[in-house]
């Protein structure tokens, strides 16, 4: 997940302080990926080094406002224009665990069942969060994405179970 690109996208709407970027990022993603303020400033200083953002005035509390540069805008455009490739995602521990269970566990079915219950519970929690997240479209779509992922996992677990029986 690219914090850098997320922050650049927010800055493309106008100059912002670090604390504002953090709040807006979490509002969009429904605090699904909480950021600490340190991460925000580290990311901003690297982006500044790379010429993607530049600092503006400092307010009376010593906070610096950041604005995006032309190079930064181009980078955001490139990011939005590039589809995410499967190889960008980390290895899936569950897939590896189930492959090992089928190969080496005396009761792979019980591993599948335990996972299914856990994934269903996750999905129940996500669905409840979605019910409570009326209004904010970005937040709801993030939750929808996680629900679709959990759903795919459950379908795959059913598929694994059929293969075993």
């Amino acid at each position: 997940m690219s914090i850098r690109h997320g922050l650049l996208a927010l800055l493309s709407r106008g100059p912002r302080y670090g604390y504002q970027l953090r709040a807006e990022f979490e509002a969009c993603t429904g605090a699904t990926w909480p950021l600490n303020i340190g991460q925000v400033y580290t990311t901003l200083s690297r982006a500044e080094r790379d010429g993607l953002v530049e600092p503006g005035e400092t307010d009376e509390q010593g906070r610096v406002v950041y604005r995006i540069t032309e190079a930064g805008r181009a980078e955001v455009g490139r990011w939005f224009g590039t589809p995410v490739a499967p190889s960008d995602r980390p290895r899936d521990e569950l897939v590896i665990k189930l492959a090992m269970a089928v190969a080496a566990h005396p009761d792979a079915l019980s591993v599948i069942q335990a996972q299914r219950t856990a994934t269903m519970r996750t999905m129940q929690e996500l669905t409840r969060a979605k019910r409570q997240a009326d209004g904010d479209l970005a937040h709801r779509l993030v939750l929808d994405s996680m629900i679709f992922h959990a759903e795919a996992e459950l379908r795959w677990l059913d598929h694994c179970e059929k293969g075993l029986s």
Binding site: R116, M123, Q124, L126, R131, I147, L154
Partner: peptide
Amino acid sequence: EPRYAAWADRVIF
């Protein structure tokens, strides 16, 4: 459909 079951307080398999 898991996505609809997920609206429940309790899901029974």
